[in-house]
Write a protein that binds this DNA or RNA. Structure first.
Lengths: 147, 147
DNA sequence: TCATATATATGCACTTTGCACTTAAAGGGA
DNA sequence: TCCCTTTAAGTGCAAAGTGCATATATATGA
């Protein structure tokens, strides 16, 4: 059974998209949500973390764990690319930090536009939660008694 | 200002992805979530609707409104493609319905695998809601007092 | 010296999506 | 009759996002 949190255990031994990139090899559990949902919200979480404290990509990657993101859910590549993209769009601004040990870090901080967009995300996430809540209500009503 | 639910009103007059497909024309409100988040959950909602009653794509499209999906959020194309894909994967099964007025309808019904996957979605959505809840908690704590 | 941890990045294949457009059947109005 | 609208399903294409393999570089410790 694959590591997918929604997989209720069928046959094969992989992780949906992650270890099977071609149609023919897809997980027999038929559940392919993989790591593709939450990454859509990734920008929101990055902005929230940066609004608390300016940091660099590597640390952000680790901080995401505190939100329930697992290593399997997010790829470092995705984070670095999001951050560069957000800088292009003026949501964050970066400077190189060569102090401290190890390789240079690219320190990111929120811009005023970034704060605006973070606020927009809060609106959207509140809305999405309502919709998802409706889903669960209907699902629970549907399965009540039958299990 | 664009129609995006998260757009808090800046300058340009479009809808993020929807009316601006090229980088150069992107919405100046910097908020581009567009209709791209909820479509990720679309399979879940389609399975839920089909578990209540077998129907066809066009009706499913209209039923999604009852969940809070707006016309702007979902494209008919996406639904039809999802349904065909789900049939390929054995989650649903279709038959042509030529009775009744108008063009033929492709009637979809859930398979046992489809029911399993619907259950998986419930698990995942419950999990995602927790994560999104944490986001809002942190955000509200962060903005408490400052507005 | 070599392995490991930290830190960032690129190239490629693949998937999903939105938009424009096509195809059809049925019904209504001029 | 011709045309328009509604219902119903689909195709083709370009753009965007993602995972994985891989590259690069600095510092630390065995």
């Amino acid at each position: 059974m694959c590591g997918e949190s929604g997989c209720n255990g069928h046959k094969s031994d992989h992780g949906g998209y992650r270890q099977s990139r071609y149609r023919e090899e897809r997980c027999e559990c038929h559940f392919e949500r993989g790591g593709r949902l939450l990454p859509q919200y990734l920008q929101a979480f990055l902005l929230l973390l940066l609004s608390a404290k300016p940091t660099h990509g590597y640390e952000l990657m680790e901080s995401l764990g505190s939100f329930g993101f697992t290593d399997q859910n997010i790829d470092p590549t995705t984070i670095y690319r999001h951050l560069r993209r957000m800088e292009e769009d003026g949501l964050v601004k970066s400077t190189w930090d060569t102090s401290g040990a190890g390789p240079a870090k690219r320190l990111y901080g929120l811009t005023p536009e970034g704060e605006d967009v973070l606020q927009s995300w809060a609106v959207v996430i509140r809305h999405d939660m309502k919709i998802l809540g409706t889903f669960l209500e209907q699902y629970d009503r549907m399965t009540a008694g039958s299990r």
